[in-house]
């Protein structure tokens, strides 16, 4: 087995086990940490697939910003394993079975799909230069629109999260 395959299997095992850790751990903070590990392993897969830019962006945005946000919220609510609610056994079983069935169905469907082989030493489409060229020529409109999306998300988050002000002075004079 070449280095490539060893790395692949390593990263795969890491990803799946940490994903299982996310859903199975009782402490929410442990779940967050497991999820961060999952993101790192996925970024590793990106590098293996010659998508260097995305690997770095994944780490920065997801593991760096989003997970930190989650941690903030969990800390804010002071959640820990004691107060963590649990669903009933039957419902959990139903959930697991549903997920399992979905897995099997998709697998069976895609088993006989026609695919092209992946080349190992392949193109450099994942390089920042090439990706940037595609982004700013072919997809420039979605790119600009996504900035508007961010703006609206920001405004929305602020408006929703604002505390109600109970001490407002009435506008009319006394």
């Amino acid at each position: 087995m070449g280095i490539y395959e060893i790395l692949f299997w390593l990263l795969t095992i890491m990803a799946i086990s940490s994903a299982l850790g996310v859903i199975l751990s009782r402490n929410p903070i442990s779940s967050v940490l497991f999820l961060i590990v999952t993101f790192f392993s996925i970024s590793g897969h990106y590098i293996l697939l010659n998508a260097q830019f995305l690997a770095v962006v994944n780490v920065i945005v997801y593991a760096g910003a989003i997970m930190v946000l989650f941690l903030f919220v969990i800390m804010l609510m002071n959640l820990n394993a004691d107060v963590e609610p649990q669903k009933g056994r039957l419902l959990q079983l139903a959930g697991v079975i549903a997920g399992g069935i979905l897995f099997l169905v998709v697998l069976a469907a895609l088993k006989s799909a026609t695919v092209l082989p992946l080349e190992k030493a392949s193109s450099d489409i994942g390089l920042i230069k090439n990706l940037g060229r595609t982004l700013f020529t072919q997809f420039v409109l979605p790119f600009e629109v996504s900035s508007v999306l961010f703006l609206s998300a920001m405004i929305g988050a602020i408006v929703i999260g604002k505390k109600e002000d109970t001490n407002t002075i009435p506008l009319k004079g006394k």
């Binding site: 859903i23 929410p28 697998l107 992946l118």
Partner: peptide, 29 residues
């Protein structure tokens, strides 16, 4: 690596995510 391996991995992660949404009661999780 044939691309089917990546398909399996991705589907496994996806289904684990689904099981997670069904099993947990904590909204943040």
């Amino acid at each position: 690596m044939p691309v089917q391996y990546y398909i399996f991995l991705s589907m496994a992660l996806f289904c684990i995510g689904i099981m997670g949404t069904l099993i947990r009661r904590n909204a943040i999780i």
